[in-house]
């Protein structure tokens, strides 16, 4: 038993030596301590766009969005173009491209109850479609609108549930 443990320890030491040496020689080598922004399950910093105004629908954090995701009454709306939606979206989200709102609205409207929790998102911090769509839906009389401004990029970066093209094929 003692011999086994010593042999195992030697193997891991050898693996470490080879791994670190190989990395030093590898042109694609990586630093020993990488830069990983702290990714917490409960990320609770809310991202608010500079163009937000008083009275806009509430902006929610990734954590809140993830919480709502598990509530069966919540509907996620993806405000991006259909091409982007098709390349991957939050699992279960409906596509309602803001730029083609009127074309898609007849298909989406029957699925939305006026008092349902709606989480609207687009690609992430550089995209304001979710904000515009949230304002527009509020004007149409929807009461529980949440804007998840971190959007697709924040959601995907945490590995939260998605639908990707290969899942559907």
């Amino acid at each position: 038993m003692k011999k086994l443990i010593i042999s195992m320890a030697l193997m891991v030491v050898l693996a470490a030596a080879l791994g670190l040496a190989g990395n030093a020689l590898n042109s694609e080598g990586i630093p020993l301590v990488g830069n990983y922004p702290k990714i917490e399950y409960g990320a609770d910093s809310v991202i608010i766009p500079p163009s937000a105004e008083e009275g806009d629908p509430p902006f929610i954090t990734l954590k809140e969005a993830y919480g709502l995701f598990h509530d069966p009454g919540t509907i996620f709306l993806d405000a991006r173009e259909s091409e982007e939606y098709d390349l991957g979206h939050i699992r279960g989200a409906l596509n309602l491209p803001f730029d083609w709102f009127d074309d898609h609205w007849p298909d989406v409207e029957p699925l939305l109850a006026k008092d349902a929790d709606l989480v609207i998102y687009c690609s992430g911090a550089e995209c304001e479609l979710s904000l515009y769509e949230g304002r527009h839906l509020r004007e149409l009389g929807y009461g529980k609108i949440h804007i998840f401004f971190g959007g697709w990029s924040e959601w995907q970066s945490r590995g939260f549930p998605t639908t990707m093209p290969q899942d559907e094929s």
Binding site: M11, V12, A15, A16, L18, G19, L20
Partner: peptide, 9 residues
């Protein structure tokens, strides 16, 4: 860096 090398060994 270490885990794959240990797998290989």
């Amino acid at each position: 860096l270490i885990l794959p090398m240990l797998e290989l060994l």
